[in-house]
């Protein structure tokens, strides 16, 4: 067992992100997130654990698109946690912001409290049209109607690697645990690791002069750290 609990952190390098949405698709497939279709999305009932925010910079013809993947920020002082009346969302010892689906009663208080709007609500009964029902991940609950869901940092992958490593009598090495989005990201813009390990890749990237936290002035102390500096975006 580790002497100090890990603090899982995701680094998002905005200078590398091309807005290709591969992370969104990977997340959808890994975590049994249903697709709700265009109509429901227009009505504001989208279901995504990651959404890519797009910004236009400059005036035509010198215009640039900037992309920012926003997922649950796994805040240390999470505004969603104290508002839950049934303790369905709480803080784990590893610093993850957990959502226990079978406890959730769907008040959506947490969704209102979240300043990042990354908690999505199952307005309708999720449907997995053929052949999608064949690829449901058995390690993730298939959520039903009337509850909130959000990014978990792929806790099922963290748990699997930890159990495997402990069975071999060691701790997981840096880079061994990869959430689905990190594994997929083609330009390698996402890095996942333990911030409490000073030699990990995320620890080194987090001290970069390019690093910032989304809405850092709110004091939520997110577990997602963005990097942005150059003019290298698309």
């Amino acid at each position: 067992m580790a002497e100090i609990e890990p603090r899982w952190v995701l680094i998002v390098d905005l200078d590398r992100c091309t807005g290709c949405q591969a992370c969104v698709v990977a997340c959808q497939a890994e975590n049994n997130v249903p697709t709700v279709g265009e109509h429901e999305t227009i009505e504001g009932r989208w279901l995504h654990w990651i959404h890519i925010e797009r910004y236009w910079e400059g005036e035509y013809p010198n215009i640039k698109a900037r992309f920012m993947p926003v997922m649950c920020q796994q805040c240390t002082a999470a505004p969603c946690e104290p508002v839950c009346p049934v303790f369905a969302t709480y803080h784990t010892p590893e610093g993850l912001n957990a959502q226990i689906y079978n406890r959730c009663i769907g008040t959506r208080f947490c969704g209102s409290a979240c300043p990042y709007k990354t908690r999505t609500y199952n307005w309708l009964r999720p449907e997995f049209p053929e052949p999608l029902h064949e690829q449901l991940n058995p390690d993730v609950t298939v959520r039903s109607r009337g509850l909130i869901e959000k990014c978990t940092f792929c806790v099922q992958r963290i748990r699997r690697i930890e159990i495997e490593a402990h069975a071999q009598g060691r701790e997981p090495v840096d880079g061994e645990i990869q959430p689905a989005c990190v594994q997929t990201c083609p330009p390698d813009a996402l890095v996942f690791g333990d911030l409490n390990d000073p030699s990990s890749r995320v620890s080194q990237l987090a001290t970069s002069h390019r690093s910032f936290k989304l809405l850092g002035e709110l004091g939520t102390d997110p577990g997602v750290i963005y990097l942005k500096g150059g003019e290298t975006n698309v």
């Binding site: 067992m1 957990a98 609950t141």
Partner: peptide, 15 residues
């Protein structure tokens, strides 16, 4: 004591 925090955590069994 060193195990109970991890084992009594909701995410130890819930997914």
């Amino acid at each position: 004591d060193e195990k109970v925090g991890r084992l009594a955590d909701c995410l130890a069994c819930h997914k």
